[in-house]
C-alpha cells in the first residue's frame, strides 16, 4: 500500500508540470503584447515598459517559466495588477470561503444522494424508484444559475423565509453565523452532485445485489436488512467514493456560477473579477490553485479507492 501511495505521488509530478506550463502559457497566449493589454490602450510607452520589466516579460521564455515555477514553489505568485497586493494573499482570503461552500455542498450531495440511491435500488422498478430517478434527472439537467435564481425567487424574495444573501458584508475569512445564509448556495451547488451520487449508488447497488455473495449471505439466514446494509452497501460504496471525491473537486473549481449568483466572495468570483479586469497574475494564480487542488483530490480518491477495494491489491 505504501508503495502504491509513493507511486501515485510520483505520478502526479508530470501532471503538475503540465499544469504549470499551461498556466504559465496563459500569459503568453494573449494575442498581442501582454504588457500593453494590461497597461491599457492609453498607457505611455514607459509604463508599458515598466510592466514588462516588472513581470519579467523581456527575458527568454524558458527563463520566465523557470522563474515563475521557482517563485510559485516559494509561495510567490506575483502581485495583483489591480490592487498591488500579493496574489497569494488575494487568494488566501477567498479560498476558505469556497472550501467551506464545497465541503457543505459535498456533505449535502452525499447525504441526499446515498439515501435516494439506496431507496431506489432496494425498491427498484417501483413507484418510489421511478420518482427518485426522475427527480435526480431534473437535478442533473438543471443549470446551476437557473436553480440558484429559482431558489432566490422562491425562498428569499417570495416567502421571505431566507434572507437575500449579502455576503459582501461578511467577515472576509468566512461565513456569517446564520445557517440560513449558507443554505441556498449549498443547495444550488450540491444538487447536481446529489443527483450524480444517487444514480451512481443505485446502479452500483443493483449490480452488487445480483452478486453471488449476496445470495450466500441470504443462504446464511441473515435478514434482508443486514444483507442490504452490511453486505451489499459496503461493496456498492466503493465506486461511489470515487464519484464523491470527483464531485468535491468539481465543487471547488466549479463554484464560479453559484458564487456569482449569491454574491459570495470566493475563489470563483475572484477569478471572474480578475478576468474582467485583465488582472493576469490573479487569473494565473486562481487557475493554478484550483488545478492543484483538483489533482490532489484526485490522488486522494485513487488512494482511498485502493484502500477500500481489497481485490485490486492483488495485481
Amino acid at each position: 500500500m505504501a508503495k502504491y501511495i509513493v507511486r501515485r505521488l510520483l505520478q502526479t509530478i508530470p501532471v503538475l508540470i503540465g499544469v504549470s506550463i499551461l498556466v504559465f502559457s496563459l500569459m503568453h497566449l494573449i494575442p498581442g503584447d501582454a504588457a500593453q493589454i494590461m497597461a491599457g490602450e492609453a498607457a505611455s510607452e514607459e509604463s508599458v515598459e515598466q510592466i514588462r520589466e516588472k513581470l519579467g516579460l523581456n527575458k527568454p521564455k524558458p527563463v520566465q517559466y523557470f522563474n515563475y515555477v521557482s517563485n510559485a514553489i516559494q509561495g510567490d505568485l506575483g502581485n495583483s495588477i489591480r490592487s498591488g497586493r500579493p496574489v497569494v494573499d488575494e487568494i488566501k482570503g477567498r479560498f476558505w470561503v469556497t472550501a467551506e461552500l464545497a465541503v457543505y455542498a459535498t456533505i449535502l450531495a452525499v447525504f441526499l444522494g446515498l439515501i435516494a440511491g439506496i431507496i431506489s435500488a432496494v425498491r427498484h422498478y417501483t413507484w418510489s424508484d421511478v420518482s427518485i430517478m426522475v427527480v435526480a434527472l431534473f437535478g442533473l439537467s438543471m443549470p446551476n444559475f437557473w436553480l440558484g435564481l429559482l431558489l432566490i425567487q422562491w425562498f428569499a424574495v417570495g416567502v421571505d423565509f431566507l434572507p437575500i444573501p449579502d455576503f459582501l458584508m461578511m467577515r472576509p475569512s468566512g461565513w456569517g453565523d446564520s445557517w440560513r445564509q449558507i443554505l441556498l448556495p449549498v443547495i444550488t451547488l450540491g444538487t447536481s452532485g446529489a443527483a450524480i451520487i444517487a444514480r451512481m449508488t443505485r446502479a452500483s447497488m443493483l449490480e452488487v445485489i445480483d452478486q453471488d455473495y449476496i445470495r450466500t449471505a441470504r443462504a446464511k439466514g441473515l435478514s434482508e436488512k443486514i444483507v442490504i446494509y452490511r453486505h451489499a452497501l459496503k461493496n456498492a460504496l466503493i465506486p461511489v467514493v470515487t464519484v464523491v471525491g470527483l464531485e468535491f473537486g468539481a465543487f471547488l473549481g466549479g463554484a464560479v456560477i453559484t458564487e456569482t449568483i449569491f454574491a459570495i466572495n470566493g475563489m470563483g468570483r475572484l477569478t471572474i473579477a480578475a478576468i474582467t479586469e485583465r488582472d493576469f497574475p490573479v487569473v494565473q494564480g486562481t487557475v493554478l490553485v484550483i488545478s492543484l487542488l483538483f489533482v490532489f483530490v484526485n490522488m486522494l480518491v485513487d488512494i482511498s479507492y485502493r484502500m477500500l477495494n481489497k481485490r485490486i491489491d492483488l495485481s
Partner: peptide, 14 residues
C-alpha cells in the same frame, strides 16, 4: 445450508 458453484465470487470480498 448451502454451498455454491463459484467459490471465487460466493464470498464477500470486503
Amino acid at each position: 445450508s448451502m454451498i455454491f458453484q463459484e467459490p471465487m465470487t460466493s464470498l464477500n470480498p470486503v
